[in-house]
Amino acid sequence: MKLLDESAVLAGYLIAAVLFILALKGLSSPRRARRANRLGAAGAIVAIAVYVLGHDIANAAWIAGAVLVGILVAVPAARRVQMTQMPQLVAAFNGVGGGAAALVAVVEFTHGPDGWARSVIAFTVFIGGLSLTGSFVTFGKLQGIITSRAVMFPGLGVLLAVLVAGAVASAVAMVLTGSMLYAIVLLALGLVVGVLFVLPIGGADVPIVISLLNAFTGLAVAGSGLVLSNVLLLIAGTLVGASGTILTVSMATAMGRSVPGIVFGAFRSTSSGG
């Protein structure tokens, strides 16, 4: 049953986009920040509501069940976490968001997209996969599951370069052939690169990397928006990608570090781990 027509849905997306912008803007002021966060949540509810009311949705019971499972996992985790453990919880939430974006792109790939859409899907699958495992490694580091110090072993730089080259080759093969096999290979490479990319980063640099991976997930969501031709995903993802990049640079500057120094520092010399 469609209760809303197409233009009403698009108007709802516009309202949601404005609410997201106000939410990010409001977070710059401590006094307005809490209200701003509620505006952001309201934007998300508006967007989902207009989509559900404006389309015929198959598997509705399954989807409702999946949403319920997600709520039952997320709310206790977010409510019980201690103040000091919040950064790693944000990292974990960011990781699952990246994973969701990668999976949405993989599913879209089965719908026989054209060459341009295939290349956007390749980007989204790789970045989303990287964000998923990279975020989980930062979670492990901050939670003390794995050492928070920089983990470095000989040849890691070369190995990463080979894996990234392999990912580029898989992406090209995926765009040219449209074969799901290459999409799965690309996702797997993204997952491995995410782990290896974050391992050499340690100590006080870890929260800055969470912010960088947050921006990456934003870009993956924007990619999903392009593939699905959904303007709200495109706007929200791009906003997070851009603002997350600026935020990452600000966080690094506040600590007297540079983003390239954090990401590539461990590969340059052994004495740069500050």
Binding site: A16, D56, I57, V104, M251
Partner: peptide, 22 residues
């Protein structure tokens, strides 16, 4: 908190997930 807010906003990928599941 700003990082966390941006993180919540990209969770709107839920809309994309509902689209493909539907």
């Amino acid at each position: 908190p700003l990082m966390s807010e941006a993180n919540a906003i990209h969770g709107i990928i839920l809309l994309g997930a509902i689209m493909v599941a539907g």
